[in-house]
Amino acid sequence: MPLVAGVDVGSLTTKAVILDGDRICGWCLRPTGAFSQQSALAALEEALAACGRAREDLSAIVATGYGRISVPFPARRVTEITCHARGAWAEFPRTRTVIDVGGQDSKVIRVDARGRVTDFAMNDKCAAGTGRFLEVMARALEIDLEEMARLSLSARGRATVSSTCTVFAESEVISLIAQGRPRDEIVRGLHEAICDRLQGLVARVGAEAEITMTGGVALNRGLLAVLQERLGQRINVPRHPQLQGAYGAALIAAEQAA
């Protein structure tokens, strides 16, 4: 079985997955930081080290994510849209719609029965409705992302937060705190705002069941609950949603190596 790698250089985090046949034998997730090339290389090396292998053992590498163009090693480049679709479909073969909330963009992807992308929609212009948005808001609220999920699930009301601009939304959050609005309601409002945007994207391509959510935000149970309620469907969450792009990339690399 050829050993292959998928490297997903995102705006916030860089992920690498090493596949030995159909088994993930090593992986790594690290912050991208200011130097995406170094971080791509480091992620790949760490993932290889985790399974005791070296770069020479790899038969193929696929790079994805916004930094795919400049990875400092030979790799085929495939967009994160195709890779997330492939990764989600491999874990949940009945997936027909993939929702990926990444660091600076969110996307909704339609896939066919063979895991091929048939249509997609992405957020435009602003990071509102993305992982970065949640991060900024968590900082404004002085809580961590885990706490955000917990607060959202227990909220009884919701504050209204604008979903069009991260900077404006942040100042809205600050004034809501100043008005004494309970934090759980603010968090719930933020999740609703993200889901407004996601629902719009879903509507653009159509939400055919099953739906699978990828990206680190899928671990936010609070947001997931709001989204499931909005879409009226259960949403699959992979074991390692943050790695799904890199996993999809590795699967494509495996096809190439085969």
Binding site: Y66, V78, D105, D124
Partner: peptide, 16 residues
């Protein structure tokens, strides 16, 4: 213009 975003969208479209 958002060239990088446009590029990713076009590339994904071509991949499909």
């Amino acid at each position: 213009g958002r060239e990088e975003q446009a590029r990713t969208r076009l590339e994904a479209f071509l991949e499909s």
